[in-house]
Amino acid sequence: MRTRVQHILGKDVGAAAAFLMPAMVILGLFVFLPLARSVFLSFTRWNLLVGPEWIGLAHYRRLFTSARFWTAFRVTALFTVFSVGLTMFFGLLLALLIDGVGMRAGRVYQTVFFLPTMISLVILAAVWLYVLQPQIGPANALLESIGLPRIGWLRSSQWALPSIIGMNVWRNAGYTMIIFLAGMQAIPEQLYEVAKMDGASLMRRIRSVTIPLLGPTTLFVFVVSVIRSFLVFTEVQVLTGGGPGDSTLVMVYYIWQEGFRYYRAGSASAIATFFFVFVLILSIAQMKLSERRTHYMGVK
């Protein structure tokens, strides 16, 4: 009797298994096994040296009464809302502008706006550290030259999070733009011609043709951006270390701090597990909710 797999693959099932093996081994070893281990560790106390010692749900119970955990939650949510919103807005705006100037000039602009995405994040952060330096940085020099007061930027709890969001938007808008552009090029030209014949203005064409037909692209960009924002770490690590106070304490930084700065691998795992489930549920909900409102141009 042939199994369903054999039915699909015919007699090549052995070959298929052989080809899949390396990927399965690597994924299993470096993704699934650590994931399972992390879930296990979340029920233990372990300082990397002594233990792990089973303590049940104690870490999870503590989480809900921990002020810093909720601070991290709030900061991460704020970061995600503004970072995703602004990245998508500017990504779309850039894509529309580049689509408008035509192919040849568009290529140049594409490259320019995409550049920040290709540079190492640590190097970018170091550059921004200089730009935002309160005494000698160009950002404050610019403010002063137009008669505005200096800002503490990364050293002020009011401005540190907006600064990191700003850098993130600047970096990721180019990536988002490329994806939007690809989506726009897939929209049939005839639709615009028909709209023009009906006397639709440029704004109207964007609103009624481009944006609705970018639905699947937008959904993809949205889900990916949200997940990426939740996982923000490097910028915070390099620029603020979670400070001043706890004003830029994002969730992954908090997990890192618990695990590798305070050596509480169990507690860090509990936060990570909780956060993993949270992001998973949110992503599924996002897909389900947005799918209903998305046009797939006949491919449903």
Binding site: S156, G245, D246
Partner: peptide
């Protein structure tokens, strides 16, 4: 290390901010 971070936040919140 954690005690240090706690004191650093106290300095941030009371004296710098």
């Amino acid at each position: 290390t954690e005690m240090h971070d706690i004191l650093a936040r106290a300095v941030d919140n009371a004296i710098l901010e």
